[in-house]
Write a protein that binds this DNA or RNA. Structure first.
Lengths: 233, 233
DNA sequence: ACAAAAGTGTTTTCATTACACCCATGG
DNA sequence: CCATGGGTGTAATGAAAACACTTTTGT
């Protein structure tokens, strides 16, 4: 199997400069976004209803084809801005999905992104053009188009891993929040309950939280400079 | 900025089914592979010499365009097989690089893979077609084409993180190896020295190593079933 | 026999887990 | 006054880090 390819690879190398040989894939690139938010202690993801075939009228991740000169991350941000009216959200590349056959229209490769947005800053745009963007609880998703169910599972696992070693979770919260709200976000994402005292101890030792001093209302601000741990007052 | 896009996004949505609108990017997809190996306590990466413009005669990661019906992972494996004569290596998707301008020929998106191969199983193919595949120490790379320097740095960081929680590093070793060889691989990748006793203790407690009993030669086999810890004899 | 590499245990420190009662608020 | 939610500390466990001498092998 290995040796047979030698000859063919010569064609490939020529292709790298001529760019117009048969056999070369005419893959198309899309960006799909898994946008998470939290509402009523439930982890939710933004879906849209497909207006066209394939998978017409089924729910799907918001996504779209790249524009000229655009990076996939910009595509993802643009799409999210259109559907959810939110800019400057936390967004990162998740994985590139490219199994042949994942899209019946042909070889369509999707660079998936995952985004975190606080529910408060979401302004979902329900005009006819936006394909009815809707939040669904991750725990009870409808039937999804393409391999989007798989992409969401992957994103959920990434999110669970990510909150263990980063402060990305702040993106899901308003600028000021209580310790219990923070813990509740963790519990929601991880799907299990955590010990209140240990949770507080851990977070305090990380120096990522600054107490506001507003004791009775129990409000904490996220550290403004998140690279530099802040001293407790 | 956000609202202006609403109108344009309607065009995009139509495009999603018609597929032939102006403004849509005609991006091309390539796979590039960062193949690591270890030789003489040095971490090395496989590079090829570009035969054509752009960056003619400069060193670059082995890579190539997708074929029809091929997944990018297959592309990466095929390329590695051509240049390094190795099949069944450890390979995983690294990241997708797509900054506009990364390739002067136009919008060329690269799905980067990273691979680990034991030096012994490498049979580098030096025919004229293979662009002189050569191993370079990661610590002293030549000037590289495109953003390949950046991709290699990213891969190196991923490798450093990965060996902390997986046994992927076995792919860099022959089937039988000594404890010190194993430790040496870790030290090479991490770029710092580790305590011999703690290293052995840690690995033994993980149950991922099986002693061969061949005490004087000090050979250990990697566990054949790596999901099931093995009992020590 | 000398030098270089391989083998071996103990102690300390730190992070993680488990666990229960008091206080304040609002109805 | 009762129920709910918010606040707090200690003890046990387990993992990680620091640390030095003996044995073996090859020259």
């Amino acid at each position: 199997l290995c040796i047979v390819n030698t000859k063919i690879s010569a064609i490939l190398l020529d292709n790298m400069t001529t760019k117009t040989q048969p056999g070369l894939a005419k893959a198309q690139l899309t960006a799909d976004v898994v946008m998470f938010t939290i509402e009523d202690n439930t982890l939710e993801v933004l879906l849209v209803k497909r207006a066209h075939e394939p998978y017409k009228d089924q729910w799907a991740l918001p996504g779209g084809f790249l524009w000229n000169g655009e990076a996939t991350k910009q595509t993802a941000e643009r799409i999210l801005c259109d559907k959810a009216g939110v800019e400057g959200m936390y967004i990162e590349q998740l994985y590139t999905f490219d199994s042949p056959g994942r899209d019946p229209r042909g070889q369509i490769v999707s660079v998936a992104y995952f985004a975190l947005v606080a529910r408060e800053s979401l302004k979902i745009n329900l005009s006819a053009k936006t394909q009815h963007p809707t939040l669904f609880p991750v725990a009870s998703l409808p039937q999804l188009a393409f391999d989007h169910q798989h992409i969401i599972s992957y994103a959920h696992r990434r999110l669970q891993a990510k909150i263990q070693y980063t402060n990305a979770v702040y993106s899901l919260l308003p600028p000021a929040f209580t310790f219990n709200q923070l813990q509740s976000v963790y519990e929601t994402i991880l799907g299990r309950s955590l010990d209140r005292r240990n949770f507080r101890k851990k977070f305090m030792s990380l120096g990522l939280i600054r107490p506001t001093g507003q004791k009775l209302t129990g409000i904490c601000f996220p550290a403004t400079d998140r690279t530099q741990p802040l001293v407790l007052s």
